[in-house]
């Protein structure tokens, strides 16, 4: 691909991802309302919100660092959108492929969270500071099981001889890890998938663990809009990475389609899968995780989920040795 094509494809993909993230947010809110036996907002509510927030004034706290305060959400949203350039969507290869794009995607995800937290810290308010600290605490405790999951998957792919670089998402999409695993390997993969799923609500900011409205408390107008968009993009990106790793089946090949038909069917199929994952992990998982105590949530992710992920690694190890 030439540079020009790449740029056009990137912009198109990012816009599309943004659109899908908003639609999924609307669906998420409708399903949540159904769980609560409410009617809920229309599916297009996130778009109304977008227009409304865009038209509103962005307030700047008097003690805030202006560039960091308003730059943080921009950077968070942009880095979350960039992740989609490294994710193979359906049968389409990622726009920017590389040997370690899995790690890069995770890195961008954390970068997006940190940018938002930095923006909140720049608001120079003790309330925002306390919530930002809590979020930082949670993300730090989530990073441990996430790195265990990532490295055990890569090790397993390398050990079982999947073609391609072990830290590339394309490797997992081209040949599902399930096909090379024995029974204990499948058990291990299921455990790893469950651990990954339980991480999504926390990293997608769906766990309301604070009393002050989260780190986006002091954002308003466009900064609030961007911080909410960043959260939605991150949620979508996380679910997409999950689909690429654990759920990579191709509908088009199953139907024996070629060329354009294959790409478009797989493209749609991919987003359907992402939607399913998001509904299970974020909508229903969020309904369960609720507003746990921050310390308990941190120890849940830092100890319990890490332990589960390590158990999964052990099973994969057994599978590779047998």
């Amino acid at each position: 691909m030439s540079w020009g094509t790449k740029i056009v494809a990137s912009v198109a993909l990012m816009l599309l991802a943004a659109l899908i993230a908003l639609i999924f947010e609307g669906a998420d809110r409708v399903i949540q309302a159904r769980i609560q036996r409410r009617l809920g907002p229309p599916l297009s509510q996130p778009f109304y919100d977008l227009v409304k927030l865009f038209a509103k004034e962005s307030l700047l706290p008097s003690d805030a660092l202006p560039w960091l305060f308003s730059g943080g959400p921009v950077f968070a949203a942009a880095s979350a959108l960039t992740i989609f350039l490294y994710i193979p969507i359906g049968s389409l290869p990622p726009v920017l492929a590389g040997g370690g794009d899995f790690l890069l995607a995770l890195f961008l995800m954390f970068l997006s969270s940190f940018a938002l937290i930095l923006g909140a810290l720049a608001g120079a308010s003790p309330y925002g500071e306390i919530d930002a600290k809590k979020e930082l605490d949670l993300i730090a405790s989530c990073s441990v099981p996430l790195s265990v999951i990532a490295s055990s998957l890569a090790w397993f792919a390398y050990r079982q001889g999947l073609p391609g670089a072990p830290f590339s998402l394309e490797t997992f999409v081209a040949k599902p890890v399930w096909s090379v695993a024995g029974w204990s390997g499948i058990m291990g993969l299921i455990i790893l998938a469950a651990a990954f799923l339980s991480l999504i609500p926390a990293l997608a900011d769906r766990v309301q663990r604070n009393i002050f409205g989260g780190s986006s408390r002091h954002f308003s107008g466009r900064t609030l809009l961007l911080s909410r968009l960043a959260r939605n993009f991150r949620t979508l990106a996380f679910c997409s990475v999950f689909v690429s790793l654990f759920f990579p089946g191709s509908m088009g090949r199953f139907l024996d389609l070629r060329e354009l038909a294959l790409f478009s069917v797989d493209f749609l199929f991919f987003w359907v899968k992402v939607f399913l994952v998001q509904t299970v992990a974020v909508t229903w998982g969020g309904a369960f995780l609720g507003r746990f105590k921050n310390s308990r949530l941190s120890s849940f992710y830092g100890v319990a989920v890490t332990g589960v992920a390590l158990a999964g690694l052990l099973l994969l190890f057994l599978d590779a040795r047998l």
């Binding site: 609560q36 036996r37 409410r38 009617l39 369960f288």
Partner: peptide
């Protein structure tokens, strides 16, 4: 709890417009 919430989601919605 899961069954309770699932049953909850399947019941008649309460919103009165």
């Amino acid at each position: 709890t899961l069954f309770f919430l699932l049953r909850q989601a399947c019941r008649k919605r309460l919103t009165n417009l």
